[in-house]
């Protein structure tokens, strides 16, 4: 396949066409922050962290859903991008109830890591403090909506990889919530196979096994990527 030239952060690269800006950057060790992206499942560009500047386009483009074209000039780390990344991260913290001190994911949380990377030391927006449910009806797992950032990785992994489609989404705006089946308790689900993939896909402490206590949760989202790759190889 013919390669096409692109310029990313003033680096001249020859890359395969039909690939996303994110894929190209990751291949060339150019750091792009992401939350809703998980290699192996479909990209939806919802977290708005992977925004890049493309010359000739006024708005910022999400790197995970924008494909490279010949002679594209891309910037990934301008002050404008950093500013928006920090705002987005702060809004994640302000929207739900993220209390790291009592969270199972404390110390191994993608949201915490994101905060450190974007330099968030305080939240400049008022916290919404919504009253969120904690669904403990499943025999092994817990869904804590307080800690959910609506990346929807669980929804996509359940649908695309496990094929069960237990998870889906209801409502809009800040009232948006992940639901099990038709908004019924997770434990009563007729579609959930209890495979636990959603747990590993989840970047925060929103989905966790009951056998875990504060700060002990270690997730392995790479396992999902590996699973998808292995399935492709068998075909």
């Amino acid at each position: 396949m013919n390669k096409i030239p692109v310029l990313i952060d003033e680096k001249k690269l020859e890359v395969d066409p039909h690939r996303t800006i994110l894929e190209v950057c990751r291949e060339h060790d150019i750091e792009i922050l992401t939350m809703c992206h998980l290699k192996g499942i479909a990209d939806i560009g919802s977290c708005r962290l992977c925004l890049v500047e493309v010359e000739g386009i006024n708005k910022l483009m999400s790197a995970c859903t924008t494909k490279v074209t010949a002679n594209m000039v891309i910037s990934t780390a301008t002050e404008r991008i950093k500013k928006y990344q920090r705002i987005t991260t702060e809004l994640f913290f302000a929207e739900r109830n993220h209390v790291c001190a009592v969270c199972v994911s404390n110390g191994s949380c993608e949201l915490q890591e994101l905060g450190y990377k974007t330099g968030v030391d305080n939240i400049r927006y008022p916290h919404l403090f919504p009253q969120c449910n904690v669904d403990t009806s499943h025999p092994w797992y817990v869904m804590d909506h307080n800690r959910c950032i609506m990346c929807t990785r669980c929804v996509r992994v359940c649908n695309e990889v496990e094929g069960a489609h237990n998870w889906d989404i209801k409502n809009r705006g800040h009232q948006v919530r992940i639901i099990s089946d038709f908004d019924t308790p997770w434990g009563a689900s007729t579609t959930c196979t209890s495979c636990g993939k959603c747990l590993h896909a989840c970047p925060t402490g929103a989905i966790w096994p009951k056998a875990i206590v504060q700060g002990q949760l270690v997730k392995n989202p790479g396992m999902i990527t590996e699973l998808v790759e292995k399935r492709k190889m068998r075909l």
Binding site: V99, V102, I123, H127, F129
Partner: peptide
């Protein structure tokens, strides 16, 4: 200087704000 998560972002102290 705000010292600690409670002073900075309410943390555990703020958990009563949900009710």
């Amino acid at each position: 200087i705000a010292l600690g998560d409670c002073a900075v972002m309410t943390n555990v102290t703020g958990m009563r704000n949900y009710f």
